[in-house]
Design a protein around this nucleic acid. Structure first.
Lengths: 220, 220
DNA sequence: GGATAGTTCAAACGCTTGTTTGAATCGAGC
DNA sequence: GCTCGATTCAAACAAGCGTTTGAACTATCC
């Protein structure tokens, strides 16, 4: 057969864990479910990863790494394209949001990874949270710099708040897509990923560029 | 002693469960932790509620009921105030977001309930989801009608998408307040609830009123 | 004061959890 | 062909889980 890059069982475990975690959440998922789905022995998880927590980390890293890499890639391309002029906010937001949405496009695995991704925000333990910071450090730094350049009129603090809200909106979409369907009584389909991305980008861009309340309480 | 409105232990269990669920999530929290925190016997939960799932429902209902009641109350006041003229979007959003944020204002219990509230979106099982629909049905109907009136230029579908994103942004804020602190390297404080509400309202209002992409791909 | 209904309690139930163990199996390298 | 390290396997481990049980307690009414 072909060259075994990394142990086949290791990959099988990661794939199965991804699916089970996405469906059940981290806490509810049991390693017995995972080994059953992967078709490997119960002890394989501890042999290859050491513990359930370590497996969670491994799954997460494999899932989020490429996304953040692509984000930075898109942002760099954007900065190259608009080397001198101003960076369009919508384009920056799209560079951040598209890689996350994109993976939902490709069949079951993509959707599962997307759900898994969403789970992280809500269910993260302390260990998960530290890794989350590690993985996102660069992305946050680069994107907040880009946003600052895009929207010089908005204060840095406001930008952080709004970026944080954007993450929440995107995470919600991936954590609970059926929620939108129920909310809209079937009229909006969260599985049309291009529509979803467009909606998300529009909403987030407008939110980002919202007027800052400079003192006066302008409640229109 | 005073009149016992409902069993003291029942209240103690609900209080303790609220705290433990908020801290650990529903899946990780054990009823042994809850009875220990409440200072009651292990069997008390099953005697008073029947099961752990039923307890989750009870805690949730007690937590979300008053919030949704207040939302409708604020919205009705608003509609009375602007009986003829247009409803200001920001005011509608504030009517929706304030009751949720408000409870964080009062010491530990408020913050715990807020976290619990946030957990629901990410961790809900099928049973929880059905109850969530039941509890939110009215609120969604009334607020989407109000938003439609506020923003006649925005299509109904767009409004649903954006309302859904707003829920996500708000839920994120309550699920993971420390996340904002980390993201902003300490510059933004999610515990200043009035600031948080203001930021949330501004972001959501701008997102709600975003221009709809009527055909032309206006990527500025 | 004995009976009754409501509540609390310690103890155990059966089951699932993450993890460990030690033997069995496999695949190269000499 | 044999050895050795890496991998797989069935089986068991202790601990924790939600839940049940039946006896003890408490207050109320006749």
């Amino acid at each position: 057969m072909s060259v075994v890059v990394a142990s086949d069982t290791k990959e099988a475990i990661l794939d199965a864990a991804e699916a089970v975690f996405a469906e059940m959440g981290f806490a509810r998922a049991s390693i017995r479910q995972i080994v059953a789905a992967a078709g490997v022995n119960l002890a394989a998880i501890h042999y290859h990863f050491g513990s359930k927590d370590a497996l969670i980390e491994a799954v997460f890293t494999r899932c989020i790494g490429p996304i953040n890499a692509r984000r930075l890639e898109l942002l760099e391309a954007l900065e190259a394209e608009h080397a001198k002029g101003p960076l369009p906010v919508a384009a920056v937001m799209e560079a951040f949001l598209e890689p996350m949405q994109e993976m939902r496009e490709s069949k079951a695995k993509g959707a599962r990874m997307a759900r898994l991704y969403g789970r992280l925000v809500g269910e993260s333990t302390e260990a998960l949270h530290r890794m989350l910071s590690r993985q996102f450090g660069n992305v946050v730094k680069r994107f907040s710099a880009a946003l600052k350049r895009s929207l010089p009129a908005v204060s840095e603090d406001d930008l952080m708040w709004r970026f944080y809200f954007t993450v929440g909106a995107a995470a919600h979409l991936m954590m609970d897509p059926p929620g939108l369907k129920k909310l809209s009584r079937g009229r909006c389909d969260p599985d049309e990923v291009d529509v979803a991305l467009q909606q998300l980008v529009r909403f987030a861009s407008a939110g980002m560029a919202a007027p800052s309340g400079d003192g006066k309480g302008e409640r229109t």
